[in-house]
Amino acid sequence: MSTEITVTVNGTEHTASVEPRLLLAHFLRDVLNLTGTHVGCDTSQCGACTVHLNGEAVKSCTVFAVQANGSEVTTVEGLADGESYSHVQQGFWDEHGLQCGFCTPGMIMTAEALLKQNPNPSEEEIRAGIAGNYCRCTGYQNIVNAIGAAAKAGK
């Protein structure tokens, strides 16, 4: 049984016929070719697949695409305005908030959501905010610095 869904992704409406078991992460990557969203652990823990669903950060490996029917999704591809990066993206660039970069899209999407809820987080609040995003390279220090820099730039 296939189900027709309409999802607005980064401002563009897409209609597709999908198997109900298709995960939102694979809908974005394999149907829409938006491969910025990464699948890391595939067990709802690492956060690499984080996107925004109706403005809230979610792990897209733990949402079926059919659940997003009628919703708005933002992926990492939807953050920059032309050549101009979002504050969080610029923060990761300036503070070198990555090494291999695999966790970065999810880390950025979570940071965007965190700063929307709490525009001026303490270091402790940043660390708690990204508790659902794993980085296996950096030890997190530059990621925390990057989010702090983005908060400052957003003031």
Binding site: S44, T50, E56, K59, A113, G129, A131, G132
Partner: peptide
């Protein structure tokens, strides 16, 4: 509970 993303869902 868990983390920010899980608490949203």
């Amino acid at each position: 509970v868990a983390d920010l993303q899980v608490r949203n869902r």
